[in-house]
Simulated scan of single mutants.
Amino acid sequence: MSLASVRAFFASKQLDIPIIELSTSTATVALAAAAHGVEAGRIAKTLAFRTASNEVVILVTRGDARIDNRKFKEIFGKGKMLPPDEVETITGHPVGGVCPFALATPLPVYLDVSLQAFDEVLPAAGGIHTAVRLSPQTLAQLVNGCWVDVCGQIAPAATLSP
């Protein structure tokens, strides 16, 4: 049903954004990057946190980024990732397919500025086999997102010697 809700979300906004459906799982950043033939950073991972004030927020970061706890606390205060059983109930999307579109519960969406390093990113589309390709700016506009800086520095990808 989650993929259907994303389709309905796009239709309600009269958007013609193709949803990519694959036969292989894209439930992790590594799987998604391999399946789409892109670097891990282009995968826009969507995380759900509960803050100390009991507010649930959605945070979208580049796939190879890690949350910097100090930066996170400066913006949101203390927070914890939602446990998997709560993620689907609150977002309407299964773990591995969570996206900032068509959320079951209206939630504030924040996007880390690290996404702006790319012209195109791939967030999930409500399922563990789905994604969409769009610019970070379009993503922010679609979800009425707010830009924040909560990730640490991104380590350069390792290069392989021949």
Rank of each mutant, 00 (worst) to 15 (best):
L47I: 13
I58F: 03
A30L: 07
P156G: 09
L139V: 10
K45V: 05
L122K: 11
V87W: 04
S23E: 11
N69K: 07
Y110T: 04
L3P: 06
P94C: 01
E21H: 04
R66D: 03
A30F: 11
F72H: 03
V121T: 13
K71D: 02
N54P: 00
P108E: 05
M81C: 00
A11D: 15
I90V: 12
D149R: 08
C151T: 13
V148L: 14
S23V: 05
A30Q: 12
L3T: 05
L111F: 12
K80Q: 11
N54S: 10
L134N: 13
V143L: 14
T61L: 09
F9R: 03
T61S: 07
E21S: 09
S114T: 15
A44V: 08
R70F: 02
N69G: 10
G77L: 00
I154P: 00
D68C: 02
I75W: 04
G63D: 03
N69C: 03
A4K: 12
E120K: 10
A155L: 14
L103Q: 03
I43C: 03
R133N: 08
T24H: 08
P100G: 07
D149H: 09
A40K: 09
R66V: 01
K13N: 11
T89D: 05
D85F: 11
R66T: 07
V150Q: 03
Q14D: 14
P94H: 01
Q153P: 15
A155P: 04
D119R: 11
L122C: 13
G41I: 10
V38F: 05
A125Y: 04
N69S: 13
R62P: 06
P84M: 11
R7H: 04
K13I: 07
P106S: 07
P83E: 06
T159K: 11
Q137L: 14
V38W: 07
H93T: 12
F101H: 11
S114W: 13
F9K: 01
N144T: 09
P18N: 00
